[in-house]
Simulated scan of single mutants.
Amino acid sequence: IITYSDKAEEIESYQKIAPTVVIPYGTFTNVEDEIRGFGELMNKSEEAEAWLKTYDERIEAARAKVKEVIKPEETFSILEVSDKSYYGYGDNFGRGGQAVYRALQLAPLEITKKELMGDTQWKEISREVVGDYAGDHIFLTVGENNKNYQGDSIWQSLPAVKNNQVYELEEDRYWYFDPIAIQAQAEEFADMIVERAQQNRK
């Protein structure tokens, strides 16, 4: 059993069922460390390295796709819409952060680097200042009640919205940031970006 729990009574109850390993939340901050960590834990380091080799090849292919349609100076933001505000995310807190900023190596805004890419990986953003956190492209996480998000006049004034460069993400699909999720997200994001670039050229 693998758990992030630090509660002794929970761990003891798990240990009665099977050998238990505690891995605190946030132990791994990138794909390579996580895969190698589990490879070592399960005595499968060779399999871990083989997986990483395939991962690198697939990510490089996704990155190459994006480079064909995106200029290096174009910026990307990861936002989530709620009833009263937005949330901004960094490169290690789900919503596609690792896939966007690490795997695909897409450029964040300076404010994103400063405020969302250290120990703090998310923050609430009022609707009035969302423009400060909105890059040329926006990955926007939405729930069931705000799909096809139209927003208010401030949202509609954002360059990413005007240029049809907002990519909606369903929350229950993109919350995750385990290695398999990151690989799939990077490939899906690359396809989204390429498809949207082709649409916008027409």
Rank of each mutant, 00 (worst) to 15 (best):
A103L: 05
N163S: 08
Q150S: 05
S153V: 15
I154T: 15
K147N: 10
Y174V: 03
K147R: 15
E144K: 10
D119E: 14
V100K: 07
I111N: 12
I182H: 02
Q165S: 11
P108G: 01
N145I: 12
A134I: 01
D132A: 03
Q165L: 03
D178F: 07
E115Y: 10
G135I: 08
K162F: 01
I125E: 06
I180D: 13
E170P: 07
F177H: 14
T112C: 00
V161D: 09
L158R: 01
A134N: 06
P159D: 14
E115M: 14
G143S: 14
E171G: 02
I180H: 00
E170C: 00
S153G: 09
Q165R: 15
R127A: 10
T112D: 03
Y167V: 08
Q105K: 15
G151Y: 06
V129N: 12
F139V: 07
Y133I: 05
T112H: 01
V100C: 07
D152Y: 08
D178G: 12
E144S: 10
L104I: 02
Q121C: 02
N145V: 15
H137W: 02
K147W: 08
G118Q: 12
A103C: 13
V166L: 00
G151E: 07
K114I: 06
E171F: 00
L158S: 04
N164C: 02
K113W: 04
Q150N: 08
H137V: 11
M117S: 10
G135E: 11
W122H: 08
V166W: 01
L116P: 11
M117T: 12
G151C: 09
I180E: 13
S153H: 10
F139G: 08
G151I: 06
E115K: 14
N146M: 06
G131L: 00
G131H: 01
I182N: 11
A181W: 04
E110V: 09
A160Q: 06
M117D: 10
E170D: 15
P108F: 04
D152L: 10
N148P: 02
Y101R: 13
S153C: 07
L169E: 07
T112P: 02
D119N: 14
V161G: 09
Y176P: 03
E110Q: 13
G143C: 04
D132I: 03
I154K: 13
T112A: 01
N145F: 01
E144W: 00
T141N: 03
Y174D: 09
V100T: 15
G151V: 11
K162M: 06
Q150W: 00
Q183D: 12
I180G: 01
I182A: 04
L140N: 08
G118S: 10
N146P: 03
D172I: 09
S126L: 08
D132M: 00
I154H: 04
T141W: 01
N146C: 01
H137K: 12
I111A: 05
T120I: 13
V166P: 04
I125H: 06
G131A: 01
F177Q: 13
N145M: 02
M117V: 11
A134D: 09
Q105R: 14
Q156V: 10
K162S: 10
D172Y: 00
Y167G: 03
R102M: 08
Y101K: 12
R173F: 04
L104E: 07
E124N: 09
V100G: 08
S126I: 05
